[in-house]
Simulated assay, not measured.
Amino acid sequence: MIRPASPYRFVARVVAAAAVALSAAACSTGPGPSGSAPVAHAVPARLTHTLPDDPIRMLFPATGAETRWTQGMDVLRQQASRYAAASCARDAGISLPEQMPVAFIPFGDIPDLDFIDRHGFGQSAEVPAPAAGPLTARSGNPAANRSADPAAIRRCSGAGSAAARRTREAFAPLQEEWFRELASLRRDPATIRALGTLPGCLAGHGFHVRDEDAFFGLVDSRLLTADATDLPRVNRELGHAYASCMRPVEAVREPARLHLRTRFVDEHADQIRELRKTLVPSLRGAEEQYGLRLSFPAP
Rank of each mutant, 00 (worst) to 15 (best):
R253D: 01
V219W: 04
A256F: 08
S161Q: 11
S139W: 12
D114P: 07
D109C: 12
L202E: 03
N141S: 10
G285D: 12
V20E: 11
A214T: 14
V209C: 14
R68A: 08
A298C: 03
R57H: 14
N235Y: 05
Q71K: 06
V11S: 09
G30D: 14
R118S: 11
M100T: 09
V280D: 11
R165E: 13
G158V: 12
W178V: 02
P61W: 00
F215S: 04
M73I: 15
P255H: 12
V127L: 02
L202I: 00
A132F: 05
R263C: 01
A80Y: 14
L294W: 11
A286F: 12
E237T: 00
R90Q: 01
P106L: 02
R186D: 14
D213G: 14
R13C: 06
D266L: 06
E288T: 15
R82A: 08
A12Q: 00
G200V: 10
Q289V: 15
Q271N: 15
G35M: 15
L76K: 09
R46E: 04
A89C: 08
R90G: 10
A151C: 02
F179A: 02
Q289G: 14
P101D: 12
L223N: 04
L51K: 04
A18M: 06
P173V: 06
I94K: 06
A143W: 00
N141M: 13
R263V: 08
C27P: 15
T278H: 12
L135G: 06
C245R: 04
L198R: 01
E126T: 11
L258Q: 15
M1H: 11
P297H: 05
D74Q: 12
A243F: 01
I272L: 10
A137P: 04
Y242T: 04
